[in-house]
Amino acid sequence: MDALIPAFIIAALAEMGDKSPWLAAILAARFGRAAPVVLGIVAAAALASIISAVAGALIQPLLTPNARLLFLAVALVFSGVTGFLALRRPDDLENWRIGAFATSFLGLFILQFGEGTQFLVAGLAANAKVPALAAAGATLGICAVTIPMALAGTALRDRLPIRAMRIIPAILFLVTGLWAAVSALRLI
C-alpha cells in the first residue's frame, strides 16, 4: 500500500487542471455517449500508468535510495513548473474516424505522455516496494478526475476555476519536490 494512495493523490492533483479531462469532455460531447469514452479513458490511463510504473521499476535497482528520491523530486518540480504554464485547448480529434472508444483510448493515451503525470508515476514506482501499486493508484487517480468530466461535459469545465486548479497543485508539487530534493541531497 506504500505507493497506492500517494499515486492516487498525485495523479488526481496532476490531472485536475490538465488537458486529459478537457479532452474527455470534448470527446463525450462529440460522440454523444459517454460509455465508450469512459472505457477509453480507463484503458488509456491503465496502459500509460503501467508503462510508467514499469519504467520506474526498471530503474529502481540501478539507483541508490537518495537518487530515487531525487528522481521523484525532479518529477514533482517539473509538474509544479508546468502548472504555471498556460493551458491550451487540446485538439478535439475531429479528423479521427475510428470510433468513440478507439479515439478516446488513443487520444488520451498519446496525451498522457505529454503530461507530467507519467513522470510522477515513474518516480513513485522507482521509490515503491511494489511498483504495481503506483500504476494502480495513478490509474484510479486519473480516472477519478477524467471520468466525471466526460460525464459532465464541457459546460462544467467552463464553470470550474481551472487556473486555481492548476496553481494550487503546482505549488504543492514545487514545495514537496524541493523538500524531497533537499532531503535526497542530504542538505537537511
Score class of each variant (00 low, 15 high):
Gly56Phe: 02
Ala138Asn: 00
Ile10Met: 11
Thr64Asp: 07
Phe119Ile: 12
Ala136Ser: 08
Leu4Cys: 08
Ile51Lys: 00
Ala28Leu: 11
Ala164Thr: 14
Val182Gly: 13
Met165Ala: 06
Phe8Ala: 00
Arg186Ala: 15
Val77Gln: 05
Lys129Asn: 10
Phe71Thr: 13
Gly137Pro: 09
Leu85Trp: 12
Ile51Gly: 01
Arg163Thr: 13
Asp2His: 06
Ile98Ser: 10
Ala100Trp: 05
Pro90Trp: 03
Glu94Lys: 11
Ser104Val: 09
Leu185Met: 15
Phe78Thr: 03
Leu120Trp: 00
Asn127Pro: 12
Thr103Asp: 10
Ala48Gly: 02
Ala155Met: 10
Val77Ala: 04
Leu111Met: 12
Val175Gln: 06
Asn66Gly: 09
Glu15Val: 10
Asp158Trp: 10
Pro148Gly: 13
Gly123Trp: 05
Gly40Ala: 08
Gly141Phe: 05
Gly40Cys: 11
Ile110Gly: 11
Arg157Ser: 15
Pro161Ser: 14
Leu87Ala: 11
Ala180Phe: 15
Ala138Gln: 02
Ala126Cys: 07
Leu172Asn: 03
Asp2Thr: 06
Ile168Ser: 03
Leu69Tyr: 03
Ala29Lys: 07
Arg157Gln: 15
Ser49Gln: 00
Arg30Lys: 15
Ala136Trp: 11
Ala100Asn: 06
Ala144Gly: 12
Ile41Lys: 01
Leu124Cys: 00
Leu185Cys: 12
Ile168Thr: 08
Thr176Ala: 15
Ile147Met: 12
Ala11Lys: 01
Leu133Trp: 06
Asp18Val: 04
Trp179Ser: 10
Leu58Gln: 03
Leu87Gln: 12
Ala122Arg: 01
Ala55Thr: 04
Ile59His: 02
Ala29Phe: 07
Ala3Met: 08
Phe84Gln: 02
Leu160Thr: 01
Lys129Val: 14
Ile168His: 01
Trp179Ala: 12
Leu185Phe: 14
Val145Pro: 03
Lys19Ile: 05
Leu72Ser: 07
Ile147Cys: 07
Met149His: 15
Leu63Phe: 06
Ala53Gly: 04
Ala126His: 11
Ile9Leu: 14
Gly32Pro: 14
Ala25His: 13
Leu111Ile: 03
Val130Lys: 04
Gly40Val: 13
Ala29Met: 12
Gly107Leu: 01
Leu172Trp: 11
Trp22Arg: 04
Leu72Gln: 09
Ala73Cys: 09
Asp92His: 06
Leu70Pro: 04
Ala184Thr: 14
Leu93Glu: 13
Asp158Phe: 07
Leu151Thr: 11
Pro148Phe: 10
Arg30Gln: 15
Asn95Met: 07
Val182Pro: 05
Val121Gln: 00
Leu111Asp: 06
Ser183Val: 10
Ala11Met: 04
Ala184Trp: 14
Ala144Cys: 11
Glu94Cys: 02
Ala122Trp: 03
Ala14Phe: 06
Ala125Cys: 05
Ala45Val: 04
Ala155Val: 13
Ala136Met: 08
Ile171Gly: 09
Asp2Leu: 05
Ala144Pro: 07
Phe101Asn: 03
Ala75Met: 09
Gly107Ile: 07
Ala14His: 03
Asp91His: 02
Ala100Leu: 07
Ala35Arg: 15
Ala180Ser: 15
Asp158Tyr: 10
Ser52His: 05
Leu172Tyr: 09
Asp18Lys: 10
Ile50His: 00
Leu72Val: 09
Arg159Glu: 15
Gln112Val: 00
Gly141Tyr: 06
